[in-house]
Amino acid sequence: MFSSRTRFVLTALFITTLTFVIMDLRGGQGPFTSFRSAMSGAVGGGEQVGSLIFSPFLGVADWWGTWGDQRERIAGLTAENDELRLLVERSEADRARAEQLDGLLRVAGVGRYEIVAAEVIAVGPAQEFAWTVTIDAGNADGIQRDMSVINGQGLVGRVQSVTKNTATVVLLVDASISVGARVAGSSEIGILSGTGRQDSLEFQMIDPGSGLDPGESLVTFGSKRGRPYSPGIPIGEVVSVSGTAGQLTRIATIRPFADVSTLGVVGVVIRPPREDPRDSVLPDAPRAPTASTLPSIILPSPTPLASVFASPTPSASATATPSGSPAPSQEVERAATPEPATGRSN
C-alpha cells in the first residue's frame, strides 16, 4: 500500500521509540542519561525564553475566572495604549512575584532552611497525569536531585531531575509521591501520598489507635540528611478522616496548603536546618521570638542567618544563606525526641 521507503522509515521510528520506552523502563542511569540531559537542556532553554515572553499574559486565566468583574476593567484598559497595558500587567506580575517571595522568605527564615529561590517556567500537560513543573534554577545554582521544594504556604514537592539551568519538580499532589508526615503538636506520624488530584492528599497513620480531627495540620517528618524532605515544612490540613480510632487503617484526606495550580516563586531547600523547626513554620502556630520581625533580611538570632541576595534579573532569583558553619547531618529520630527549650511552644 505504501512505498518501501515509507515502510522502512516507519519501522525504524517505531523501533526507536520502543527502544526509548524500554531503556526508560529499566530505570537508573542508562546510556541515554547524557543524551536525555542534553535534550532537556535544549527544551528547558526554550521554556525559559517562552516563560519570559508569556509571563505578562498569564493573568488572562484570572480574567476568565471572574469574567463579569473583569469586563469593566478590560474596557477601561483598552482606552489606554497597548504599551501602557503591558506595563501595568508587568508591574502586577512583579508585585505578585514579590509577595510570593516574601512568603517564601518568611517560611525559610522561621524554619532556618537554606533555600535557592526559583520561578516556575513550564508545567507538564494534564493529559500525561503527572504533576510536574520546570523551574529556572539548576545545577549551576546548587540544586541537586531529591531536594525539597517549598513556597510561602508550605511544601510544594521535590526535585526529580536537574539540568544545568533548569530542574524538574514533582509536585506534592502527584500520584507517585509519598512523604513522611507528622501531625502538628503531637508525635503521631504517618505516610502521606499524592492522589493525582489537585486538592486532596491521602494520609495514612502509622498508629491507627491515635485520634485525628479535621482542622489539624501536618508537617513533614523529615528524611535522613533532609533529602528528599526537610523536617518541619507545613504540608496541609486534615479535611476529613475515614474510619474510627482502632481500625486497622485510618485514612485522612488532606488539603495541601500550597496551591499547586498557581505556583510562581518557589524555593528549593539546598540545606536543611540544623534542628527540626517542629511546628514553628505553620501559618497559625506561635512563632519563635527570633523570627517575629520577618520578613527582615537579617535575623537577630544567636547564629547569624539569612543574608539575601536578590538579583535584578526578571527571573527573580534570590539566595538565603546562613553564614554559620555547615549544618550537621539530620537524623530521623529527631521527631521523636523533644527539642531542647528554645523559647518555642509546640
Partner: peptide
C-alpha cells in the same frame, strides 16, 4: 517526552 516539565515514560 524529553521536555524537563514532563515526567511520563520516555517514548510514549
Amino acid at each position: 517526552d524529553f521536555a524537563p516539565s514532563t515526567a511520563g515514560p520516555i517514548g510514549v
